[in-house]
Design a protein around this nucleic acid. Sequence first.
DNA 1: TAAGATAATATGCATGCACATATTTGCCTG
DNA 2: CAGGCAAATATGTGCATGCATATTATCTTA
Lengths: 233, 233
Amino acid sequence: MTVADTNSWTGIREELLRRIVGRVWQPGEQIPHEADLAEEFGCARTTVNRALRDLAESGLVVRKRRAGTRVALNPPQKATLTIPVLREEVEALGRTYRHSLLERDLRPLPPMLHGAFQVPPDADVLYLKSLHFADDRPYAFEERYINLATVPGAQAASFEAISANEWLVQNAPYSHGDLAFFALSADDDLSAQLDAAPGTALFAMERITFAGEEPITHARLIFAPGYRMRTAI
Amino acid sequence: MTVADTNSWTGIREELLRRIVGRVWQPGEQIPHEADLAEEFGCARTTVNRALRDLAESGLVVRKRRAGTRVALNPPQKATLTIPVLREEVEALGRTYRHSLLERDLRPLPPMLHGAFQVPPDADVLYLKSLHFADDRPYAFEERYINLATVPGAQAASFEAISANEWLVQNAPYSHGDLAFFALSADDDLSAQLDAAPGTALFAMERITFAGEEPITHARLIFAPGYRMRTAI
DNA sequence: TAAGATAATATGCATGCACATATTTGCCTG
DNA sequence: CAGGCAAATATGTGCATGCATATTATCTTA
């Protein structure tokens, strides 16, 4: 009858998924209780629970206590994308990674970041400007501000051997943050750094991370032309 | 001693997390076995297992059978981003949504997609070109190919009242797909459609979805200037 | 009749146990 | 010493059960 062996929670998940995409259970419709499903599949309720939890996590079903489980009306298209450390991303492509620090100084935080990045108005932050290479070709341009109040150790770090990104993930774990992707045109500086014609459309990523309430760092990465950020859904 | 109550799996997860970010357990270091942790916390091994599974899922620890659990060397930065239905995204901004279908015809699949989108070489696919508005200002431009072999019902749908995206999520659930983000320059057509100067850098998203092995649709969305895709991490 | 208290119910979570599976370690043999 | 087999071990998974909790339905009371 069913092709998947239903005596493992993944098997049960596949079968449930089959019924959902096969419209055996309509969107918005309530599906049988865990207990009923457990009886049908001849397994423990725990096992059905595991399968349903997994489906709920991916957004295909919506679960509410007492109200039961129902098929999501419009399955929210969730994608988990892993933002790799650039070095690993480049090396995974079979190319050699290298980065160079272009600028490094202490300066006040630019006004543009005052809203999102709350530091005392007179405090200086560590500014870093660097370029990441893959096989000696520019791969990404990075501008970063580091809050020395939360990461005092950054002042002593050189960031020559190890990139700021890697140094931070290893020395200043964050609790949460914000991430944004957008497009921008290469200005003259970017054009020179990334070896792109002026005005070329570039893919950019901005990230702020926090440890609790304290901002750690603000980073803007601008990738060389042709970059695509991919993921599976 | 510990602030979190450790008699729930989330509490145990928090405590483990605290030890990881607090460098009680160094990156790369092996942490105690499930059984030992269970004894320490005075709970069942299952409960520890649940907490560790969760941490492994978010990439903070790496688990291997027999080899044990160790703290990830460089915690991969994972972000789950939800790709909303455009109508919902626009309405969430408090603006009114509208879309218009610019073109609709049957045509052979463009050669560029032959690799990723496997349909019989002589089969026609449904091509849709449309524009999404927020408050009567262009919000995103969409080009889409629909495989009629897997979604025959699409031929009868008008896509005037309901957008292709919404129609598809409700009528052709997908099992998996690929997603890519990138930047491109506005050509003359895009420039006119999106009310942007020619050459403006635009944020674009490409998506292919499948039902099993069968491709369902290929969509390319190009957003109006200034668009930022955000998420929390 | 309306509002609040109470019971019923479905899912969420925890426990203890057993067995499966993968991987390392070390022994054993040729 | 090399190669391979086997035991030890840590995690992965399943099962049966009970309690916790949130939500709905029902009953009681003013």
